[in-house]
Design a protein around this nucleic acid. Structure first.
Lengths: 155, 155
DNA sequence: TTACGTGCAAAGCGTTTGCAAGAGG
DNA sequence: CCTCTTGCAAACGCTTTGCACGTAA
């Protein structure tokens, strides 16, 4: 039962993009196009390994290092978004700057993830005194429309 | 800029504890006590590395492998809870089954994580129609009391 | 032509595991 | 005394990086 090392949880939370060490990736390469198309063509956030497999069909010989380098660059450019779910490796989906603040819903039965565009808002009051709230992440868990049990086994 | 491998994001969300392959750890060892005390004495979820450093003061010679083995066992026994924050390595805190529902706050400056005992509640309305909400995870981001900019460094 | 991007392989890092020595009961 | 637990080091798996070749512009 191996799990392996995780993703780069290193970088804490790049809320604001500093202008340092940006891997711009300005050239239009065959590999870069394949990676973008692979993600754009998926209906769900993809893991790096899934991106590799999908993009390799468009760009044979594509290597994992290139996938990681481009994912990182595309996220920095705002063309992609990293989707971090608790306890899960990061996935990647399309979503630019103009993509508004939203949250996610994960079905406890089918494990699929959905966007939730509603937001509870003003959560500043929840923090302890002396703390300043600047942002938040919210993940809802439950059952999606397709996984509603015949009866209802709420908790 | 290395980040390193991540934690075992493998298991999605162990809502219910299955009775398979439990690493019981039934003996009362000096190391096990040190690890439990280290976590119980902290006011926030600790990273494995932080647990090691704290527990080593109570049990010199303690190794990281023992920390991981005991963390895993204590979580399986329900004595500890793993705290998964988006894009972060897992942290560990006390909290059995009877431990009440709460959330977390991560300081964008010092990266430490604190418990938030408040809860916005009734988030069921946020989900799309036809979806059933059973639970949620909420993470607040901002600055903790000690990291308030110049102004006042409370607490 | 020339700097940037790619591929490969090796390094990094957090986590897990094999194995022999150590300790609880 | 016997088994479970520990500590060390190697193994693991995902991600990053060094370097030389390939290629967009």
């Amino acid at each position: 039962m191996k799990l392996g090392a995780g993703p780069p949880r290193g970088s804490p939370r790049p809320r604001v993009q500093a202008c340092v060490s940006l891997a711009r990736m300005e050239r239009n390469t065959r590999q870069r196009a394949a990676i973008r198309d692979a993600i754009a063509g998926a209906r769900r956030p993809l893991l790096p390994q899934e991106v590799l497999e999908a993009a390799q069909q468009l760009a044979p010989g594509l290597g994992m290092a290139t996938v990681y380098r481009n994912l990182k660059a595309l996220v920095e450019e705002g063309e992609l978004r990293a989707v971090h779910l608790p306890g899960e490796n990061p996935r990647y989906e399309v979503g630019g700057e103009h993509h508004h603040h939203h949250h996610h819903f994960q079905c406890l039965q089918c494990q699929r993830v959905f966007d939730v565009h509603a937001c509870p808002g003003n959560l500043a009051a929840l923090a302890p005194p002396g703390f300043t709230v600047e942002d938040h992440d919210l993940t809802l868990y439950g059952r999606c429309g397709e996984c509603q049990p015949a009866a209802r086994a709420r908790r």
